[in-house]
Nucleic acid binder design. Structure first.
Ligand SMILES: [Zn+2]
Ligand SMILES: [Zn+2]
Ligand SMILES: [Zn+2]
Ligand SMILES: [Zn+2]
Lengths: 133, 133
DNA sequence: ATCTATATGTTATAGCGTAACAAATCTGAT
DNA sequence: ATCAGATTTGTTACGCTATAACATATAGAT
């Protein structure tokens, strides 16, 4: 567990720990199985913890995977939208945030009077390592 | 049914028709219910049709909604990535494709030797009409 | 002590998606 | 016409993802 995981409840800390230890995306049910020995019994225990962790930005939800991944950045919410590149072979996730990209999307929204609440940018494909294999 | 729906099988045409008639995103199960009177009985009948329709670009899958929407563009696959703005109140979906955006994402991929296969860009929020209400 | 708010536990259920197998239909040969 | 292969369709059963509803426990404030 790096730093950011301050004042987490027991369940939140366990879920965050599982995600961080694994490093790649996990489904809520995989997390549940991982935490059976720690007393977890029902999906809701996982989902509730995930809700808070996502809210705090410690964990990201990957929509195209229906899965969750621990954030690697110290603080990845400097305003801009976050993009994810997800390798379909090894599961590795790279987060990046591009100002030009964010401006482009915000620009479209502004021009069309659309008020964004949540933005998803996910590139599925093969990472450098896996495309050489 | 506009034009593009050429050489679709019966099931594909029915699913596409349902999506086009509704105009907003529909889940596979909603489509199924809509098509009971046409003889649909099982989810797979819908999913199989959707697979083909998505493959042909007539329908888009919205990852953040686990739902599907009929494409409004005559041909929206001129190479660039497609972005979707989805109103959480009225369900209206606006598709747009921005060259600068596409270049930006392709640029990141190139620089990191990441080979994209599928890209998801979805902005959830409120459309102009709904934020005035 | 009591009250309030938040976190947890537990059961049941709803919603999304596919595996596996069978039957029908369509196609393009001979 | 008919046969073989491919594609489409039908059907059952199942697995994965997510939440509703209700009960209990815990922590802090007065
Ligand atoms: Zn992050
Ligand atoms: Zn990889
Ligand atoms: Zn389109
Ligand atoms: Zn709207």
């Amino acid at each position: 567990m790096t730093e950011a995981a301050a004042d987490l409840t027991r369940n939140q800390a366990l879920v965050y720990g599982a995600l961080e230890k694994t490093g790649t995306p996990m489904s809520a049910y995989t997390i549940l199985d991982e935490l059976r020995d720690d007393g977890f019994r029902a999906p809701l225990q996982v989902y509730r913890a995930l809700d808070k962790l996502v809210e705090q930005g410690l964990v990201h939800r990957l929509e195209s995977l229906n899965a969750f991944v621990a954030c690697r950045h110290a603080s990845c919410h400097r305003g801009g939208f976050i993009a994810f590149a997800i390798c379909d072979t090894c599961g590795q996730v790279s987060e990046f945030s591009d100002d030009a990209l964010s401006r482009r999307l915000s620009g479209w929204a502004g021009k069309h009077s659309f008020k964004p609440s949540k933005t998803t940018i996910e590139i599925r494909g093969l990472c450098a390592g896996c495309s050489n294999a």
